[in-house]
Design a protein around this nucleic acid. Structure first.
Length: 1114
RNA sequence: AGUCCUAUAGCUCAGUUGGUUAGAGCACUGCUCUGAUAAGGCAGGGGUCGGCAGUUCAAGUCUGCCUGGGACUACCA
């Protein structure tokens, strides 16, 4: 063939090569920027990029998460929306700090001494962008389109300024407050721990602690008239009645200030012995928990039988009470010391209070309350006006005035080899003093400091909070308007979280982060919240004027940005209060999650700049991150938006699951099962990786990543598509066909199979568009895959091949080209969000253009071109073909052997009409001459009846089972009757029922004397008589096949002409002569030459006959 | 400990409002087709639908409990 090739032909598919080409093309033509600028003025689709942190390397799960983001942004662009995507970097926070500390070989304590804060933060600033290039590289190579050139960076002054503005808004609305909260605290590290730190893997550990059931003695003075124990105290003396309370932290017992009981819990007063002192005692504990401490057979046993061995305690239930009866009762302090004298405690301590958190699942049903060391304790004590006792200092040791325990560490915080457990010593003391009822080791899960490995304690710390609880209802309400994918994450996980909302603790005592913008006088009486740099500069000026700041150092021009808003510089700024007192900045930094949650505003430096841009891009239409962000970014975005603007921050959110290894284990560097995204992309290509990640399982399900699956995706979808395109290109080039949309053959004039695939294609457009719009990328990808492999390649192209082979560009051939082109073109569009490289390559090749597919507009489904009947009959054609092929297989008659006819039982005229329209396709597919429809008039068709369970089940109810049996055994006569009358009477258990024709399905499943196959209600019989003529035709086809195979093996071009040299053969000479024209046509032979002896021939087996043949290229 | 997700063939996954032979792809075996195919077709083996109860004429599907896997949350004394 001569002439320029219109369509590019490629010998071997190399996905990575394609991607390199396309990447270069995108870069050269600035296609990403164009995909935005070309949509100027169009409706916006707003996407927020959740900022990654560049201090670690990206993993394969980032390809999933970012691929997911990319899909919907590209899809919306295809639909004509303008989709701006600003990249971003999360730069503050603990991970960076730790990395720097490790690098410098220091700990937190050394900051400010061995290393200055300024230097430390400078290192953080560098370190946090350490892998930015690697991230950018991945972003580019995986084809994730996001603006890398103008990202928002959370450590920038502009970013911080917006955060300050938000905080000031909150401050002015009264949402910002300082309070004492019980927080996880690591005495060994000397620092409070964030919940994030507490949830680092391995922090919660099962440990064995000494647990203690302590006896709190009911105060003898508590004999007032209201006491429920009044009568008993009188009888047995008021001296030996105790509340039993259990704790796993005996060191908190000296700090006890109250006991809590459950209002509706049943309690018993039990008389028994103390197992250590063997004194007779009377104890109060939850009735339900008696079994934990006593054996039932010892109830009411003679007290004199007690062996003073602490075993088999005899006991007697004296009385029962409800918890609420105890409210307000007093008890004697368990461990009185100098430091915890009652006078030192605010409020009315050592009382019984009610607590709704009290349960009977553990302990005694009575909870020891140490307000300083437990959040619930603090809360319930505060509600009852009972103060705190903090007998432990920040180093984790008892303060002075706690007797023999003073100065001792409550846990072994110093790795002291001679450390003696305070818990045990306290228990021993209690035992001796008849104050302990049961001491034992108890295994439970307890948090540990991730850095020191030491147990965390809960400790009262000063903190700044955002009062998110004030907007709790509104947050829940607005959450209901958000479209969550999957839904359960929104209603379940996120919804539950909102229901149990507590105020957001903003404070972090770290160094590298956004400083809290509040300055206070030392006594806390005056304070100011700074909301902008301008305001700060004004205040600095006042302070300079007041002589508190050195004007040479702080003489700053208004609205200039030359102060670094980080520590230590902000802390050098001392402001002046209205009363003229110095105000210093509260030393805390804020939670880094606030940084990322503020990105909708801070990325635009709102409200200082870009007001309009911000307004157009809030709230987001779409965000996506891992499900682990539910309580992270998803929450902080939502909380800030609701508090600030009474709005959602995003309308649609997709939370993806984890990427696990092929065995379902979490990927980690430590286990060595992590998959490197670069290696994967290098080997298989980004498209195949993306396609696999999306099509293999729903993004919100966890994905078991198996490299074998990638290979399969590549082979199946991409291989098939590539071959389909190449097939098109080869023949289009041979015929010099060029697509011309203005001069194409109208669809209605195209052949049955063309109209069928066009119908399928339009339904596909509809389905895929809806799936993307519904944020169901997996459905979209699978639908495309199914269309390409099953319908386009395996049916349309396979059955249409012959149409592409003729000599000239006939009308039908042109239609075939146009149809195939259309299908490939649309498929490229539909797959382009997931596979942006290959689709662009395909699209450009198909259209002979240099215009990217990502600038094109998505085809819209034309439902006028869909035809359900056509699709139905094609399905039947496929079904019938499949049945015939299965019959051939049974009889071992190969497909190349033509057969005379197939029989199909059919009464329904519509069915016959339908099949007639696809008859030619069936006949050529199965190599049979004709189809004969037979009715049952001859009585050779046997039928079966299957009940329609849905209809009959409702009608018959309990009789359904019996009816099924009767119906399935109906004889031909009865069936005929049913068909004629439209109904039939059945007798079930003596009752008569009328079943209707539409309530059953009648299937013809056998034709007497024929070989039949049936499925899905269609039955086919095959005539297997091979006449002489059919046999000869079979020879001819066999010869053609052998010649074609030989041509192929000899590497002839598809268009090469040949001459066949044949050695005379008794049987086949006839065949060759009779079918000469057919054989020559098929094999592009100009002639068949016979001779008695050909020297260079080769023997071929033609259905048992040997043919010596030589193929000569001419 | 709580909340949520999840369990279907050796592997990866479908399975609509409950309706009767539980499907597909991969892998395996045999046969077959092919001038686009690292393909396709036909057939075969392979399932107690995690377990136990319950609702129902009917349960992979609905309900409860239990078990395994996972995520998140957590001071349960």
């Amino acid at each position: 063939m001569s002439g320029r090739k219109q369509y590019r032909e490629v010998k071997n598919l190399s996905q990575t090569q394609i991607e390199k080409e396309i990447l270069a093309y995108w870069k050269e033509n600035d296609v990403f920027a164009k995909s935005i600028s070309s949509r100027e003025g169009k409706p916006q689709y707003v996407f927020y990029e959740g900022p990654p942190s560049a201090n670690g390397l990206p993993g394969i799960h980032h390809v999933l998460a970012r691929g997911l983001k990319d899909i919907f942004c590209r899809f919306k662009t295809l639909q004509g929306y303008q989709v701006k995507r600003k990249g971003g970097w999360d730069t503050h926070g603990l991970p960076v700090e730790l990395q720097v500390e490790k690098m410098l070989g220091i700990t937190k304590k050394d900051i400010g001494t061995k290393v200055s804060v300024a230097e430390y933060n400078e290192r953080c600033r560098e370190e946090v962008m350490k892998f930015k290039d690697v991230w950018d590289d991945l972003t580019i190579k995986m084809g994730y389109w996001v603006d890398l050139e103008h990202p928002y960076i959370t450590f920038k002054n502009e970013y911080i300024e917006t955060i300050w503005w938000i905080l000031k808004e909150f401050y002015q609305k009264g949402y910002l407050y300082k309070g004492l909260k019980i927080q996880p605290y690591s005495p060994a590290a000397g620092t409070g721990l964030s919940s994030h730190e507490l949830n680092l893997p391995g922090c919660y550990r099962d440990v064995k602690d000494t647990s203690c059931v302590a006896q709190f003695k009911v105060s003898p003075q508590s004999t007032d008239h209201s006491s429920p124990l009044k009568e008993l105290q009188k009888e047995g003396g008021a001296d030996n009645i105790y509340f039993l309370a259990w704790t796993t932290t005996p060191w908190t017992l000296p700090s006890n200030t109250a006991l809590a009981v459950g209002k509706n819990i049943d309690y018993s007063l039990v008389e028994t012995f103390n197992p250590y002192t063997h004194q007779q005692v009377r104890l109060i504990l939850a009735k339900e928990l008696l079994g934990k401490y006593f054996q039932e057979e010892n109830e009411n046993k003679d007290f004199s039988s007690y062996q003073n061995d602490g075993k088999n305690l005899p006991y007697k239930i004296l009385a029962s009470f409800k918890g609420k009866e105890f409210e307000g009762m007093r008890y004697e302090q368990l461990l009185p010391f100098e430091a915890n004298k009652k006078e030192n405690i605010d409020g009315d301590a050592f009382r019984v209070v009610l607590g709704d958190f009290v349960t009977t699942s553990d302990g005694t049903g009575i909870v020891h309350i140490a307000p300083s060391f437990g959040a619930d304790d603090m809360k319930v004590a505060a509600e009852n006006g009972i103060g705190t006792l903090t007998l432990v200092d920040k180093e984790g040791k008892f303060i002075d005035g706690v007797g023999e325990f003073s100065g001792r560490y409550v846990k072994d915080y110093k790795d002291d080899p001679n450390y003696v457990s305070v818990d045990i010593d306290i228990c021993v003391k209690l035992k001796q003093e008849n104050k302990a009822f049961k001491i034992e080791k108890y295994e439970h899960s307890y948090p540990h400091c991730w850095r020191t490995d030491k147990p965390v304690i809960y400790y009262p710390l000063d903190s700044w909070f955002i009062k998110v609880t004030a907007a709790k209802e509104r947050m829940m309400e607005l959450n209901k308007t958000i479209n969550w994918k999957p839904e359960s994450t929104g209603s379940g996980r996120f919804g539950q979280w909102l229901e149990n909302l507590v105020d957001w603790n903003l404070s972090r005592s770290r160094y590298w982060g956004t400083p809290l913008n509040i300055w206070r006088t030392e006594d806390g009486a005056e304070e100011i919240c700074i909301g902008s740099i301008e305001e700060l500069n004004n205040e600095i000026q006042k302070s300079i004027d007041a002589g508190l700041l050195d004007k040479n150092k702080f003489n700053i021009q208004h609205s200039s940005f030359n102060i670094d808003l980080h520590k230590p510089y902000v802390d050098e700024i001392i402001l002046v209060s209205p009363l003229g007192k110095p105000m210093r900045r509260e030393s805390d930094l804020i939670d880094v999650w606030f940084d990322s949650g503020a990105m909708p505003y801070a990325q635009w430096h709102f409200p200082f700049e870009n007001k309009e841009t911000f307004e157009k891009s809030f709230p987001a239409d779409f965000i996506a991150e891992g499900v682990d962000q539910t309580r992270g970014w998803f929450y902080t975005l939502h909380a800030i938006a609701v508090l600030l603007f009474d709005s959602v921050a995003y309308k649609n959110v997709v939370s993806n699951g984890l990427v696990l290894d092929k065995n379902g284990n979490k990927m980690s560097k430590r286990l060595g099962n992590a998959v490197d995204p670069f290696t994967t992309i290098e080997k298989y290509g980004a498209d195949i990786t993306r396609w696999y990640l999306i099509s293999n399982s729903q993004p919100w399900d966890n994905l078991k990543f198996d490299i074998e699956g990638l290979a399969e995706s590549g082979r199946k979808l991409f291989g098939t598509l590539y071959n389909t395109y190449n097939f098109f290109a080869i023949y289009a080039n041979i015929d010099g066909f060029t697509i011309d949309k203005n001069n194409s053959i109208p669809i209605e004039e195209r052949s049955e199979i063309d109209r069928w695939i066009i119908s399928k294609l339009n339904n596909l457009i509809k389905e895929v568009t809806e799936a993307y719009e519904d944020y169901e990328p997996t459905k979209a990808a699978r639908a495309v895959e199914d269309f390409v492999i099953e319908h386009l390649s395996n049916w349309f192209v396979r059955l249409s091949r012959r149409r592409f082979w003729g000599n000239e560009l006939s009308k039908d051939k042109k239609a075939a080209f146009e149809t195939l082109h259309e299908c490939l073109n649309v498929v490229a569009q539909l797959m382009s969000p997931v596979a942006p490289f290959f689709s662009d390559w395909l699209y450009q090749n198909l259209n002979g253009t240099k215009e990217s597919i990502h600038l094109s507009y998505l085809a819209i489904a034309d439902l006028n071109l869909t035809d359900a009947e056509l699709e139905q009959r094609m399905e039947w054609a496929q079904e019938i073909s499949s049945l015939v092929l299965s019959l051939r297989k049974k009889t071992k008659i190969k497909v190349r052997q033509p057969l005379q006819k197939i029989l199909i039982p059919a009464i329904d005229k519509h069915f016959i009409q339908q099949i007639d329209q696809v008859k030619e396709l069936i006949l050529s597919e199965v190599n049979v001459k004709e189809i004969e429809y037979i009715s049952d008039t001859a009585g050779i068709i046997s039928k079966k009846v299957k009940p329609n369970f849905k209809l009959l089940g409702k009608k018959l109810g309990g009789k359904m089972k019996a009816a099924t049996e009767v119906i399935q055994e109906l004889n031909n006569e009865q069936i005929a009757q049913l068909e004629q009358n439209g109904s039939l009477e059945l007798i079930l258990d003596g009752e008569t029922f009328n079943i209707l024709l539409e309530e059953v399905e009648i299937i013809s499943d056998d034709i007497q004397g024929w070989l039949v196959a049936s499925n899905s209600g269609i039955t086919v019989a095959l005539d297997i008589t091979i006449s002489d003529q059919l046999r000869d035709e079979g020879f001819a086809r066999e010869i053609v096949n052998k010649v074609q195979t030989e041509r192929k093996e000899s590497n002839f071009e598809v268009t090469d002409k040949i001459v066949l040299h044949v050695q005379n053969q008794l049987v086949l000479n006839n065949v060759l002569n009779r079918y000469k024209e057919y054989i020559c046509n098929e094999t592009l032979a100009s002639d068949i030459l016979f001779s008695g002896d050909i020297s260079n021939g080769k023997d071929f087996d033609i259905n048992g006959e040997v043919l010596n043949l030589f193929i000569q290229k001419v």
